[in-house]
Simulated scan of single mutants.
Amino acid sequence: MEISGILSAIVIGIIIGVLGRLVLPGRQRIGILATIAVGIVAALLGSAIAAGLDVADTNGVDWIEWLIQIGLAALGVGLLDRGRARR
């Protein structure tokens, strides 16, 4: 993977993580670095799932891929938040 691919994954991960956090109601007790990490993982997993479902490469914006990524980010943020609430 080239440096531009890594940088774009980080930027998209930040956006996906923040959007996933905004989807969840209430306050989440996780930091910004955890949100970014969840966003990066969700972006990579969402891209793989969208490619597996053959909805990743469309003309224009890949809305289904974005929705998958945001859903995974919301799930990840929710799981981390619940894990921290129990401690």
Rank of each mutant, 00 (worst) to 15 (best):
M1W: 09
I6E: 08
L7I: 15
L7K: 13
L7Q: 13
A9R: 10
I10V: 14
V11R: 09
V11N: 14
I12N: 13
G13H: 03
G13M: 04
G13S: 09
G13V: 02
V18M: 12
L19H: 05
G20S: 06
R21P: 06
R21L: 03
L22M: 12
V23N: 06
V23M: 07
L24W: 03
P25F: 00
G26L: 04
Q28E: 06
R29E: 13
G31H: 07
G31T: 06
I32E: 12
I32D: 09
L33G: 11
V38Y: 01
G39C: 08
G39R: 00
I40T: 07
A42C: 14
A42S: 13
A43S: 11
A43G: 14
A43P: 00
L45F: 09
L45M: 09
G46S: 12
S47C: 10
S47Q: 12
S47W: 03
A48R: 11
A48H: 10
I49V: 13
I49K: 02
A50K: 03
A51P: 02
G52C: 09
L53S: 07
D54I: 04
A56N: 06
A56E: 05
D57M: 09
T58P: 10
N59G: 10
G60Y: 05
V61C: 01
V61N: 04
W63N: 12
W63D: 13
I64P: 01
E65T: 12
E65S: 14
I68M: 04
Q69L: 05
Q69M: 11
I70Q: 02
I70P: 02
I70S: 05
L72H: 01
L75V: 12
L75K: 05
G76Q: 00
G76C: 05
G76S: 07
V77F: 00
G78Q: 03
G78Y: 05
L80Y: 02
G83Y: 06
R84C: 02
R86E: 13
R86Q: 15
